[in-house]
């Protein structure tokens, strides 16, 4: 690990201002992803601003009938919140499908949204990776890419976003609240939060330098049957090959987003509109234009079948 200085911020705005003006500075919350990457020198911050003690760890009802989840609410606490389990079960299900009990006790809501890809070539510093070192190339294209993206990727990067929670947040139309280095606040719809790689896979979201996530809000509950199906190589504690986050209504309509298949949670309006026609029709629209590799084309079949299982479960 490279040396760094450390300080505890006193307010969200102060934290944003410090990181905004200090070259090489980063926020640290749970640290479960950042420290892992720092040990490998994939992340090399020279200054860490601890945002753990800013009162951002509460879950509150909003006047609109939704929930406002503080950025620092731990994954365990969010999954266990009674209101979340009752009205946003998809979110609880997605959270407990991810990581281990130890990690969920530390990992935060905002940190989960910001976690980096688990592409093995991003982790291997001996390999070229446009996300880790822009312009160096992509070893995953033409490499071992069974676990990587089938859609939304580019010639520069085929990494997937690893989060389960983000798939649920996308399905639930969450909104990301932030404070910027100049103190201004804004609300970013989750659909506009994660960006596609294009020619700049090192850019993964729409946050500006020093911009700090303060909360994630959920709109009022929409009812329906909440399902999160995660298919992985082990029964527990593994990243998704394919996951399906769905909220299905009695009439067969609903919402669906896929995880493990793209650089961001993959939700397509046209596919949702076809949900009542069944998994085949919806998956065909969700994955129109997919560019799988020889090794990961199985994900297209798996995604359709996982969606079919979700629809069957909702009807049962």
């Amino acid at each position: 690990m490279k040396a760094f200085s450390y300080e505890r911020a006193h307010s969200p705005a102060e934290a944003a201002a410090i990181v905004g003006r200090t070259q090489g500075a980063r926020f640290i919350a749970g640290g479960t992803n950042l420290l892992d990457l720092m040990k490998l020198q994939i992340e090399t911050p020279t200054h860490l601003v601890d945002v753990n003690h800013l009162g951002l760890d509460k879950i509150e009802a909003t006047p609109e009938g939704g929930l406002r989840i503080g950025a620092l609410v731990r994954n365990t606490d969010l999954a266990a919140d009674r209101r979340v389990r009752k009205d946003y079960a998809l979110l609880s299900r997605a959270l407990v499908a991810g990581a281990s009990g130890q990690l969920r006790n530390k990992a935060t809501t905002a940190g989960n949204l910001l976690q980096r890809t688990r592409c093995p070539y991003f982790y291997d510093t001996n390999q070229p990776c446009n996300k880790r070192k822009p312009g160096s190339g992509c070893a995953a294209i033409g490499g071992i890419n069974r676990s990587l993206a089938v859609i939304g990727a580019s010639d520069a990067c085929i990494a997937t976003h690893p989060s389960d929670m983000a798939v649920a947040m996308r399905t639930l139309d969450a909104v990301v609240e932030t404070v910027r280095a100049d103190g201004a606040t804004r609300a970013i719809p989750i659909a506009e939060f994660h960006t596609l790689p294009g020619d700049t896979p090192n850019v993964e979201n729409s946050l500006a330098a020093g911009e700090l996530i303060t909360a994630v809000t959920l709109p009022r509950p929409i009812g329906g049957t909440h399902i999160y199906h995660k298919v992985r190589d082990r029964a527990s504690y593994a990243f998704a090959l394919v996951s399906v986050g769905a909220i299905l209504q009695k009439d067969g309509t609903g919402r669906v987003a896929f995880g493990g298949v793209a650089p961001r949670p993959w939700r397509i309006e046209a596919a949702e509109a076809a949900l009542a026609q069944g998994a085949k029709a919806a998956a065909a629209l969700a994955f129109a234009g997919a560019k799988p590799t020889e090794q990961n084309k199985f994900k297209l079949v798996l995604a359709e079948r996982t969606l079919a299982a979700a629809i069957a479960e909702a009807r049962a």
Binding site: Y6, I28, G31, T32, L35, D36, K39, L48, D50, N52, T76, S100, G101, Q102, L103, N105, K106
Partner: peptide, 27 residues
């Protein structure tokens, strides 16, 4: 593993188990 994957470093902090390898002492 020193990377939060194996759990050998598990300790209980303020009643909750965590991977002590993925947490800075100063925090």
């Amino acid at each position: 593993c020193d990377h939060g994957q194996c759990g050998a470093c598990t300790v209980i902090v303020d009643g909750r188990r965590i991977n002590s390898c993925l947490s800075l002492a100063v925090m």
